[in-house]
Design a protein around this nucleic acid. Structure first.
Lengths: 336, 336
DNA sequence: GAATTCTGTTAAATTTTTTCATAAATAATC
DNA sequence: GATTATTTATGAAAAAATTTAACAGAATTC
């Protein structure tokens, strides 16, 4: 693959009869030059459709106008929406984004992180990553980092954390069920204690306490993976064990989907005998049957906020390290 | 944001008492060096966790180990699955990917294309892009390009086209409906004549002909946008107009979703009075009510194939410009 | 003693930005 | 109006980190 290399500044300089430095000055509107030379240079630039070699610029300036986004799974609608928002904002501001799917694989995360640094990214957005492993290395290079969704267990000047109000979401979901007469509320959640899930759980727990509801450990049903099948099996098992519950707070819409499948199979009427509420408000929750009540997050806002904060940090427009907690909303549909 | 720049080869050279070139040779396992020096160098490299500056390498070698992916909307599950497959394969092979959402905006497409070239990408995957606008510029720089899904209206040595067998999909869908007794089959499709949709339509048309079914123009219902609401409105309008149809072939699952919503609102029984079949087999089609029969594509295979072909082209392992048409499958569910 | 092999050094190349120096033009001073 | 001071425009050269090619010296083999 021989590549017909494009013109370089040197060529432009020669063609327009000035020095390389002058071309650079004109192109970047930086330093002094006469109107006359500007015109001369720009004519040649346009005639030959000259494009700056961004690799060379990056080497020289140590700035790349590139950020990295590390995300578990872009196939997940919620993450995809966040990424889209990041990408859109970055495009507007002249940044490109490296997309890095980790599938929660720590090794892949570390490998990507190193590679991104070596490629000279200006900043990094970490969506729900494992976040602990890289802490030390991260802090050595100091590019700004923004965490979305999952809280990092490290802190630094250049680190910001952005998430939805998961605690409030847990409260809203639980209260919605209690207001509809439920007392035996099962919570269906990821077994790993991710900050997001933990917050939702705490909202649930505190709300039960507030209403003087006391439930045994068996009402906390953990699944190994946030996945339709896992949820279906777990709920089915609880039914088989004879657990009496009148509602399920699923910490994810996909878990809710699985729970509903189990209930249907057992011919348990929704919402009459058991009510269900999910979390995330992914599109499927609206169109599945029955339509799932849920707590909606705003992934666009999460993504845009993250991108904005990161770019501001990169460009030195801010250096405050405040965290952002975005509001959630209760969406009532047919399962409650 | 002062950046504590990492060590350079020069530092490693100094620290291990050899020359820069020697360090390079050791690191790239290129040229000759003694085992002794190798050890000396690697010790220092590991001790200080040296990372090659990929920007400098890229500048010198004119190779970046980066590819670009231009995609209309990563939020679309089908595209997301393709992108994930691309990314996974690239990661395995040591490439990173720039993700570029265009939202079908031609200007954004062109801007991204230029930027990607300036950033020195080694190759490009175009998913269902507008593909015509950039043709000339594309061919000037000669990096290999692989098109997925939508057929480019240009051809070149370095261009490959990969898609599902959309024609066959159209045939399968239409035959499935005919076999279930349908004769008045509406086709619901995107008004833009994208190669994918056109192929599906031709499959439909030819199948009707094969079975001697003759339908008026009014059975071809076009929507401006592939979108739930558009489909709902369009189908509703056809009903109001008094069109008699016993089935709908929707060229996309999302269109099928909208069609079903319209039918439900009009209290038309599915599949008893009207059967529906979609295209793509996105996850929602399985879980919506009634579950949608559809033609399944294999986005993972599309993405992986595209990535493999592109990387082979980049690395000169192949230079054949064959196109790939991947098989589709009929998935029967409740709407037929 | 010549040819071959091995090892390491030096210098050039990639493209852009920046610093420094010089030349030219303009303004300020007496 | 001549001299100095200031401003403006431009070019030359260095720097950024790496790879590669040319080269030189030493060791080995024939």
């Amino acid at each position: 693959m021989k590549s017909k290399k494009g013109l370089s500044m040197k060529d432009i300089a020669k063609l327009s009869g000035v020095s390389v430095a002058t071309v650079s000055r004109v192109l970047n509107n930086n330093g002094r030059f006469s109107e006359e030379t500007r015109k001369k240079v720009m004519e040649v630039v346009e005639k030959f459709n000259y494009q700056t070699n961004l690799v060379a610029r990056s080497l020289r300036t140590n700035r790349s106008q590139i950020i990295g986004v590390i995300v578990p799974d872009i196939t997940n609608e919620f993450f995809a929406a966040i990424v889209l928002a990041i990408e859109s904002y970055c495009f507007l501001k002249g940044y490109s984004v490296f997309i890095c799917n980790t599938n929660e694989d720590e090794e892949k995360e570390t490998a990507y992180f190193k590679d991104l640094i070596a490629k000279g990214i200006d900043g990094l957005i970490y969506i729900s990553g494992k976040s602990d492993k890289i802490s030390k290395e991260t802090l050595l290079k100091d590019i700004p980092i923004v965490f979305i969704d999952r809280k990092p267990n490290i802190s630094s000047n250049d680190i910001v954390y952005i998430a939805s109000d998961n605690y409030k979401g847990g409260v809203l979901a639980t209260e919605a069920l209690i207001k509809r007469g439920c007392r035996n509320i099962m919570i269906l959640k990821d077994i790993r204690n991710l900050s997001t899930v933990t917050q939702r759980y705490l909202g649930y727990r505190d709300t039960l306490m507030k209403y003087n509801i006391n439930l045994g450990e068996e009402y906390i049903v953990n699944v190994k993976k946030v996945d339709f099948e896992e949820a279906r099996k777990a709920v089915k098992e609880s039914i088989k064990k004879g657990l009496t519950f009148d509602s399920i707070f699923a910490c994810t819409d996909w878990l809710a989907m699985g729970a509903i499948a189990a209930l249907k199979e057992e011919k348990i009427a929704i919402p009459d005998r058991v009510k269900v509420i999910g979390f995330d408000n992914i599109s499927i929750s609206k169109y599945s049957h029955p339509a799932i009540s849920t707590i909606s997050q705003n992934p666009e806002k999460l993504g845009k906020t993250a991108a904005k904060v990161l770019l501001d940090l990169i460009e030195g427009k801010t250096n405050k390290t405040t965290n952002y907690i975005l509001p959630v909303e209760l969406v009532l549909r047919e399962t409650t």
